[in-house]
Design a protein around this nucleic acid. Structure first.
Length: 827
DNA sequence: TGGTTCCACAT
DNA sequence: CAGTTTGGAACCA
C-alpha cells in the first residue's frame, strides 16, 4: 500500500545487522506514524594510482573489532566523481552499519588511501541521497507491521519518494509550547535540589480555541486553567499525560534545550518517574557538549527551541540588546513578558500561596510567547529546512557556516561532487593565522552636505563570486593558464576559470536567481494584497545564505575553504567601488563617502536623471547578476570628524547621519544607541542632528544651551540621567572600582542579588571627591540632586561636540558663557 | 588602542 | 554516521 505523510523527525536503528532509517511524522489526517526504510551506509575511497585488485581483496577481508559487531565492508562500487574540480575515480565503500564507517575509513587511510565523506551523518546522507525535504509530503510504499515498541503505527517501506513538494499550512501543524518555573532562591538554578513548581503549556485546542494549562502542586485558590496535583512527581506524570494526549508534532519553548528539558529530565530521574514521551517510549535525551550548549531531544517530535533559531539564524537582523524572551517577543510580537518579581516566587510558594496566581499567569504567558514565536517563525524555519534539506531540528541549531556547508553538500549530489574533507587540527591552526584584506572605505571630509545620492551594489559579494566564478574549483585552472588576461584586480597571482561555470559559483548563482524570482512574486502578491509572509521567509533565507558564502570561503573549518577566493572577492569589490568612484568623478560628481558596496555622490546642481543615467551606464559594464542600485537620495547629510584628530579634515568612517525627504533621520554609527549613555545625551544628540540637518544650526545651539540651563536648574527628570553598565563577573573579583561596581556593592549590601549579568543603573550626584563615590542608585537620588556639571561635561558636550565641530564651531567660540569651570564654562 | 577574558539564556 | 569547540562585548594594561 501507499502511505503519504509529512516527516519531521529522523533517526536510524540497526536491527539484527540491518540499518534502517526512521521517519517520524504525521499524515494529513493528523495520525502520527513511524516509517522505516533500509539504506546501506557508505563512504568514498580514492581509486586513482593504487593497485585496485590488491585493494579490493584486502578491503573486503577487513573486520575491525568494536564494542558491537565487527566493522566490515559489505561491497564496493567504482564511481567517477568530481573532487574540487577534478574528475577522479573513487570506490564507493559500503559499510555494514553507520558507526563502522569512520572505523573502516580510518583503517584504509592508514594504508595511505584517502577517504571522503566518512563523517557525513547517516540520517543526513539518507535525506540528501533520496532527495527528501523534511516536512514536505513523502510517499512510502510498503505495509504497516504489528509492533509494541512504538507509541505510533509502524510502516515498513520498500521505497520512499518525494513526488510532491506540498507541505502543510502553519495552522495544521500541532504545536505545543512548554515553560517551567522552579524553586530558586537568589536566582540559583539547581535541578538537583530545587523542585519544579509549575509547568505552563500553551497550544491550540482541536476545537480551534486556545489550549491553556498550568500544572502545579500547591493547594491554593487559583485560576481555572490551573490544575493542582499532589506533588512534584505527580506534576511530572500529569505533564507527560497532557503532552501525550495533545499529541503535538512540534514541541517548542524558549531555551528549552538548555533549561526546561534538562530540568525535567533531572527531576524525573530524582523521583524515578519515567518521563518517556518519546515515540519509542524513550526519555528525554540531553546532549551536552563538553563546552557550551546543550541540545535536548524527544524522539518523534520536532523540538524547536526558539532561542536557538533566533540566536543562530533569524535574530541577526533583529535590533535587540539580548536574546532574552522579553526582548525578542517585544521586537517580534509586540508583546512582552508579564512583569512579576520572580525572585519572590520561592518565598510566596513557601509562605503566601494565596499570591501564587500571578506567577501562574506569568508561567502561562511565557509559554504563550514561545508558542507565538514558533508560529510566527515556522515559515522561516521550514524555508531553511527546505533549502538545506536537513531536519528542522538540526537546521535551527546550526551556525551560518554549517548552514552554507549543508546547502553545498545537498547540491553536491547533482554535480556528482565528492565533498572535500574537513581540515585537520594542524591545518585549522594554520588557517587561523591567515587573514585577508577587507573592504574599501572612502574617508569622508567632515561636513554638512546637501543633495546626496546613495547608490549601492545589490548583494555585492555573492554576485562577485558568482559572476567571476570564484571558488576553489576554478582557482588557477590549467585550462586558462596560458591566456591569463583576466587576473583578479591587484592580485596578478590569482585567476579563475573563464571557460566553465564551477560548482560553488553555480549553486550560489541559483540562490541569487531564486531570490530575484521570489522578489518579483512578492511584488505581485503585494499588488494583489495577498499575504507575503511565506515569500518573505523564502527571500530572507536565500539572502542570508547567499551572503554567508563569502564568509564560508574564508572560514577556517570549511570543507570548501579557499582563502584565495575570499581575498579575490574583496579585491574585486574594492576594484568595483573605486572604479565607480572615479567614473562618478569623471562625470563631474563629487564623491563624499563610500563604504564596501555603497557610494555617496553630491548632485551639486546636477539632476537625479543624470545620476540615474550614470548608474545605468555603470550597470552596462557589470557582469553576471551584479547590479548597482539607487539606495536613496537625501536632501542633507552630515559626516563628523574623528575624535582626537583634526576635526576639520579627517572624517570618521561609518559614522554619519542623513535626512530623508520625509524629514526622518537615518543615523549610522553615532553613540545614540549605547546603554552607557544617558537618555538625555541620546535625545540631545538626535535632536541636534535633526536641527543641524535642517539647517537650523542656531536653533541647535540654542537647544543645547537651554538643555544645559535646564540641567543646572535641577529640573531634568532623573530617568533621563540614568546610565547603565553591566556587571560581568563576580563582584568581589573587581579590583578597580568603576562607578557601576561601587553601586553594585551598595545594592548587594542591601540584600539585593547582584551577579554576573546584572545591569546596574546609576546617577552621578553633587558632592566632593571621586566620581565613583558620587554614583548612586537612581531610587536614592532626590530631585535635583544630580551633578549638572558632570552631565554637561561627560554626557552632553561629548554627544554634540563633533557635530558642531563640523560646522566650524570650536567649543570656545561657540559655547562662551558664564563663570563655570570645566568645558561647561563655554556655555 | 590592542589584547584578553568572560558570558550567552533560563529561575 | 552526533561531535566540535564560538564570537562579541566588556574589561584591563
Amino acid at each position: 500500500m501507499e502511505l503519504q505523510f509529512y516527516p519531521y523527525d529522523f533517526e536510524y536503528k540497526v536491527e539484527e545487522g540491518t540499518t534502517f532509517f526512521y521517519f517520524y511524522g504525521r499524515t494529513k489526517e493528523g495520525q502520527k506514524v513511524a516509517v522505516k526504510h533500509h539504506y546501506q551506509p557508505f563512504f568514498y575511497a580514492a581509486a586513482s594510482n593504487i593497485d585496485r585488485k590488491k585493494f579490493e581483496e584486502r578491503v573486503l577481508k577487513l573486520s575491525l573489532k568494536t564494542g558491537i559487531e565487527p566493522a566490515q565492508v559489505v561491497r564496493l562500487e567504482l564511481v567517477e566523481k568530481d573532487l574540487l574540480g577534478k574528475k577522479q575515480e573513487f570506490y564507493k565503500v559500503y559499510a555494514n552499519y553507520p558507526k563502522a564507517v569512520p572505523l573502516l575509513a580510518k583503517e584504509i587511510q592508514a594504508w595511505g588511501i584517502n577517504c571522503y565523506e566518512k563523517d557525513i551523518l547517516y540520517t543526513h546522507r539518507y535525506l540528501r541521497d533520496h532527495d527528501i525535504i523534511p516536512m514536505r509530503q513523502v510517499t512510502a510504499v510498503g505495509n504497516f507491521v504489528r509492533n509494541q515498541w512504538m507509541r505510533v503505527p509502524v510502516f515498513v517501506a520498500e521505497s520512499v519518494t518525494q513526488r510532491s513538494q506540498e507541505t502543510l499550512p502553519v495552522s495544521d501543524w500541532r504545536i505545543l509550547a512548554i515553560d517551567l518555573e522552579t524553586y530558586a532562591v537568589k536566582r540559583e538554578i539547581d535541578p538537583k535540589n530545587n523542585p519544579i513548581l509549575m509547568a505552563g503549556l500553551y497550544g491550540a485546542g482541536k476545537d480551534g480555541r486556545e489550549f491553556r494549562k498550568v500544572i502545579t502542586w500547591k493547594n491554593a485558590a487559583l485560576p481555572e486553567y490551573v490544575e493542582i496535583v499532589a506533588d512534584e512527581a505527580a506534576l511530572l506524570q500529569r505533564m507527560k499525560e497532557v503532552i501525550l494526549e495533545y499529541s503535538p508534532d512540534i514541541l517548542t519553548g524558549y531555551f528549552t534545550d538548555g533549561f526546561d528539558f534538562p530540568y525535567l529530565q533531572a527531576r524525573a530521574e530524582k523521583h524515578k518517574v519515567r518521563f518517556d514521551l518519546g515515540v519509542d517510549y524513550s526519555e528525554i535525551i540531553v546532549n551536552q557538549s563538553s563546552f557550551g550548549d546543550k541540545e535536548s531531544k524527544i524522539k518523534g517530535y520536532l523540538h524547536a527551541d526558539m532561542l536557538k533559531f533566533i540566536r543562530n539564524i533569524f535574530g541577526k537582523d533583529l535590533d535587540v540588546e539580548t536574546y532574552s524572551l522579553d526582548a525578542v517577543s517585544r521586537e517580534l510580537l509586540g508583546h512582552q513578558k508579564h512583569k512579576v518579581e520572580l525572585e519572590k516566587l520561592s518565598q510566596v510558594w513557601d509562605n503566601n500561596p494565596e499570591k501564587l496566581a500571578e506567577f501562574c499567569a506569568y508561567n502561562l504567558h511565557d509559554s504563550f510567547l514561545a508558542y507565538r514565536l514558533c508560529e510566527k517563525l515556522l515559515p522561516d524555519m521550514m524555508e531553511f529546512t527546505s533549502i538545506v534539506g536537513l531536519p528542522a531540528s538540526d537546521v535551527i541549531r546550526m551556525r551560518f557556516s554549517k548552514l552554507v556547508e549543508s546547502y553545498i553538500l545537498k547540491r553536491a549530489t547533482e554535480f556528482t561532487a565528492v565533498a572535500p574533507n574537513k581540515p585537520e587540527n594542524t591545518e585549522i591552526s594554520r588557517r587561523r593565522e591567515e587573514s585577508i584584506q577587507g573592504a574599501f572605505v572612502f574617508e569622508p571630509v567632515p561636513g554638512l552636505y546637501k543633495d546626496i545620492v546613495v547608490f549601492d551594489f545589490r548583494s555585492l559579494y555573492p554576485t562577485i563570486i558568482s559572476a567571476h566564478n570564484l571558488g576553489p574549483e576554478g582557482l588557477k585552472c590549467s585550462c586558462c593558464a596560458d591566456k591569463i588576461k583576466s587576473h583578479v584586480p591587484g592580485k596578478e597571482e590569482y585567476w579563475f576559470c573563464s571557460r566553465e561555470k564551477k560548482f560553488l559559483p553555480a549553486i550560489l548563482e541559483d540562490l541569487i536567481f531564486r531570490r530575484a524570482e521570489i522578489k518579483k512574486q512578492i511584488k505581485q502578491a503585494k499588488a494583489r494584497k495577498e499575504d507575503t509572509a511565506l515569500l518573505e521567509a523564502r527571500s530572507y533565507s536565500l539572502k542570508i545564505l547567499a551572503n554567508s558564502f563569502y564568509g564560508y570561503l574564508g572560514f577556517y573549518a570549511a570543507r570548501w575553504y579557499s582563502l584565495e577566493s575570499a581575498a579575490s572577492t574583496t579585491a574585486y569589490a574594492r576594484n568595483y567601488i573605486t572604479t565607480t568612484i572615479s567614473k562618478a568623478q569623471q562625470k563631474g560628481f563629487k564623491v563624499v563617502y563610500a563604504d564596501t558596496d555603497s557610494c555617496f555622490l553630491l548632485l551639486e546642481g546636477k539632476t537625479m536623471e543624470e545620476a540615474t543615467a550614470f548608474m545605468e551606464e555603470i550597470n552596462k559594464t557589470l557582469p553576471g547578476q551584479m547590479e548597482l542600485e539607487l539606495e536613496g537620495n537625501y536632501p542633507k547629510g552630515i559626516f563628523v570628524g574623528l575624535k582626537g584628530r583634526d576635526q576639520q579634515s579627517v572624517g570618521a568612517k561609518k559614522k554619519y547621519a542623513l535626512l530623508r525627504k520625509d524629514g526622518t533621520l537615518k543615523i549610522t554609527g553615532f553613540e545614540t544607541v549605547r546603554r552607557n549613555w544617558s537618555l538625555l545625551a541620546k535625545e540631545v544628540q538626535e535632536k541636534v542632528l535633526e536641527l543641524v540637518l535642517q539647517e537650523k544650526v542656531e536653533e541647535g545651539l540654542k537647544y543645547v544651551k537651554e538643555t544645559i540651563k535646564e540641567l543646572r536648574s535641577g529640573k531634568v527628570a532623573l530617568d533621563k540621567l540614568i546610565m547603565k553598565t553591566q556587571i560581568t563577573r563576580e563582584l568581589s573579583s573587581y579590583s578597580s572600582f568603576a562607578p557601576h561596581v561601587k553601586v553594585a556593592q551598595e545594592m548587594k549590601e542591601r540584600g539585593l542579588n547582584i551577579d554576573a549579568g546584572t545591569i546596574i543603573s546609576f546617577i552621578i550626584v553633587k558632592g566632593k571627591g571621586l566620581i565613583r563615590d558620587r554614583a548612586k542608585i537612581p531610587d536614592d537620588v532626590a530631585a535635583g540632586e544630580y551633578d549638572a556639571e558632570y552631565y554637561v561635561d561627560h554626557q552632553l558636550i561629548p554627544a554634540v561636540a563633533s557635530i558642531f565641530a563640523v560646522l566650524g564651531y570650536n567649543e570656545e567660540e561657540v559655547f562662551k558663557d558664564s563663570s563655570q569651570t570645566g568645558l561647561g564654562k563655554y556655555f
